[in-house]
């Protein structure tokens, strides 16, 4: 039987008495999984991270990390977690090596003993080990921060938006690193605003305006998609937005990269010919309309538009 690495029940957090950052959050993270918090900036992801890492007190609710209470047992929790915050939080005036030494000493941890865990990442930055951390490139800083967060071999690693503003290739590299960390039996909780990264998690919670709007494995979100999703190419993906305001069918249209996506909530045998007639009536040129499997981004859009 798997143990809950994290259990959160009814957590609320309000700032300055008025900004509701978290509203009735309930979720469990299982030991050994990669759990993703997926949502836009301002959704409450960082607030939840700060509460889970015992840096912030909730207004109400209960949080357990490996059965320890986040409010009462915060000192013990801090021993077993690693945290990579959203902003660079190492010492810019210390060298790469000195930063790693510092964190190892603080956690009374032995670098040699845990080298096997960080070696694949450390290998990439050790050529610069005498350089000051502040002088590293963005990608290198992040790899160093990851080494420092792992050097005491935590049971849970928290990563707050590690890939925001990072180019697609470096993002992919970073997720490959996370996969290798998971194989060392470390539970990973990671947040991201990039919907495409959700598929790299075992389970995800979609979060919007301080509320969790769904928790599932990515594939379950996709299986639960209510609409019938179609894609086509058009020269005018944005001017089509205006035209679609007049569409009589129950559907949701949005641009999706070079394609147009339409989710229909109709019987397709009748709706599809009606839709094509509508496009022709409004002088829209388009290529073949074909059904397509939704992505997590399609799911997010459906859930948010439907809850409004």
């Amino acid at each position: 039987m798997s143990v809950s690495a994290i259990s959160i029940k009814g957590v609320n957090k309000t700032y300055e008495g008025k900004i509701e950052a978290l509203k009735d959050i309930n979720l469990d993270v299982e030991e050994g999984e990669v759990f993703g918090l997926v949502g836009p900036d301002g959704a409450g992801k960082s607030t939840l991270f700060n509460i889970l890492t015992t840096l912030l007190l909730p207004d109400s609710g209960q949080i357990k990390v490996f059965l320890m209470d986040a409010v009462r047992d915060y000192k013990s929790i801090r021993q077993i977690i690693g945290y990579l915050p959203g902003t660079f939080s190492l010492y810019p005036d210390l060298s790469v090596q000195e930063n790693l030494d510092f964190f190892a000493v603080m956690y009374k941890s032995d670098i040699e003993e845990n080298m096997s865990l960080i070696e694949p990442i450390w290998k990439q930055i050790s050529p610069f080990k005498d350089r000051k951390a502040g002088k590293l490139s963005g990608g290198m800083k992040q790899k160093l921060a990851l080494c420092c967060a792992l050097i005491h071999r935590p049971s849970i690693l928290f990563l707050d938006e590690p890939t925001t503003g990072v180019d697609p290739v470096s993002r992919k590299e970073f997720w490959d690193i996370l996969k290798s960390i998971r194989q060392q039996n470390i539970t990973v909780v990671v947040s991201t605003p990039y919907m495409d990264e959700a598929t790299r998690c075992d389970r995800i919670a979609l979060i919007q305006d301080g509320r969790i709007i769904g928790i599932n494995p990515p594939q379950t979100f996709i299986n639960n998609f209510k609409g019938k999703l179609y894609t086509f190419k058009s020269e005018n993906i944005f001017s089509l937005l205006k035209v679609m305001e007049q569409c009589p069918l129950n559907c949701n249209y949005y641009p999706y990269g070079e394609h147009c996506h339409v989710a229909f909530y109709e019987d397709m045998q009748e709706a599809l010919p009606k839709f094509e007639a509508f496009l022709q009536e409004h002088h829209q040129t388009y290529e073949t309309i074909t059904p397509i499997d939704p992505s997590v981004e399609d799911c997010f859009i459906e859930i948010v538009t439907h809850s409004n």
């Binding site: 836009p40 900036d41 938006e161 925001t164 605003p193 919907m195 919007q208 997010f300 859009i301 948010v304």
Partner: peptide
């Protein structure tokens, strides 16, 4: 649009 939700 860094960090902005898919709809916005």
């Amino acid at each position: 649009t860094s960090g902005v939700d898919p709809i916005v």
